[in-house]
Design a protein around this nucleic acid. Structure first.
Lengths: 211, 211
DNA sequence: TCAAGCAAAATTGTCGACAGGCGACAATTT
DNA sequence: AAATTGTCGCCTGTCGACAATTTTGCTTGA
């Protein structure tokens, strides 16, 4: 609804988002825009300064690294929990279908969609971990990760390979070994973390702050 | 400011919090109350339903367990980071002073204050972990934990003993062993988790849902 | 007595308007 | 020329009012 209209387009990080302007553009009052702003703020896409309004969030490589480390903590524990609670078999068919879909979307032009499925894959695991708080944190980070990744677009050289890497996680789930599952997720996210943060560091070396 | 006035007092979990009522009581318009409501919502103290307004959040033992497990993931990693980044010596004096203060507040009537210092102790560690996201999540959980604990009041039999248990964490930090530090925090929170969740399960067995 | 339907009250969602605060720019001073 | 101060305009924070929706209490009928 409103949220999409705001984020969808052309906004550089650090840009100011005046609620009066948005309200005028969308032909509604400022109140609903305000609500949507708070929503996007809690989703981590905007930050608000007192008496100044909303700004598009900026992010540096250190913060991105923190983000991935947090994700790591949540997801490796969630993966272990899935095994411990004996819910692996229940979700493996879903996970395999998602990987197949990802592999099918490995064309350059469809990277954005692949990122979406990638997130769904991880969410499926967290969702079935049995820990609602894990899911809440994950969902909050998800929009940020997706937004960041969408802006970076291509960090990895071989998107198809990345998609196939998810099979390792499913394999570990199938063994029923809690520790192996945890380590599989640990490795998987660790690789992504290095790649994304490394890419970002290079961007920073060339210019200033980035989204 | 407003937030305190809303939460401070007498509200049962599940209670409805009508913004019109609050606004009348405080003699302000509904707009600022709305803002405060969103704030408390993102702090996890209220939930909002469409066209229904705000309600005081309810919590069950399973959710509380999830909360502590999440805390565990964050804090044990944060503790390990403090050691890894070589910032132990920098914060140990602060930590020791906080424990002393806690021990001094071990009287029954001051348990609420002790809980506050306890949270500060843990926050100090997370704050100096070097991971901003850890701190953000911790701060979000902190208000919830504090609110819950304040309602439970006395879960532990010997508050002084709990306070002194924090020395074990400082000891582990002093050794400079990353793994030992992680395990010390792991054990510390694990004990609290069992006690709090166990206490809550008993309450649930007697009645229905609880805060 | 109880259930269903209806009407009235209450509450949220939205609106336009006004006051105060902040940043930007110009004028003045050093 | 650089820095400080004064002014202007835009934007947020707050307000009271109206419309839409939900809840509640009452009436009506079986």
């Amino acid at each position: 609804m409103l949220t999409d209209a705001i984020v969808s387009g052309r906004l550089k990080p650090g840009d100011r988002v005046a609620e009066s302007v948005i309200a005028r553009d969308l032909g509604v009052s400022r109140a609903p825009v305000r609500e949507a702003g708070r929503l996007l703020e809690s989703a981590g896409l905007l930050v608000s300064k007192a008496n100044r309004g909303f700004f598009v969030r900026t992010i540096d490589s250190e913060d991105l690294d923190s983000l991935y480390e947090l994700r790591l903590c949540i997801e490796r524990e969630a993966t272990a929990r899935v095994v411990r609670e004996g819910r692996s078999g229940e979700i493996i068919p879903t996970l395999l279908a998602q990987i197949d879909e990802m592999v099918g979307l490995s064309q350059d032009s469809q990277l954005i969609y692949q990122i979406g499925i990638d997130l769904k894959f991880h969410r499926t695991i967290v969702e079935h971990s049995g820990n609602r708080r894990f899911l809440a944190v994950f969902d909050k980070l998800a929009s940020e990760i997706q937004a960041c990744t969408a802006l970076i677009e291509r960090v990895f050289d071989e998107p198809g390979k990345v998609a196939r890497n998810h099979y390792l996680i499913v394999d570990a789930l199938e063994t029923g070994d809690e520790i192996a599952a945890r380590e599989a997720m640990d490795y998987h996210i660790g690789v992504a973390r290095e790649a994304v943060v490394g890419h970002f560091r290079k961007l920073e070396a060339e210019s200033g702050a980035q989204v």
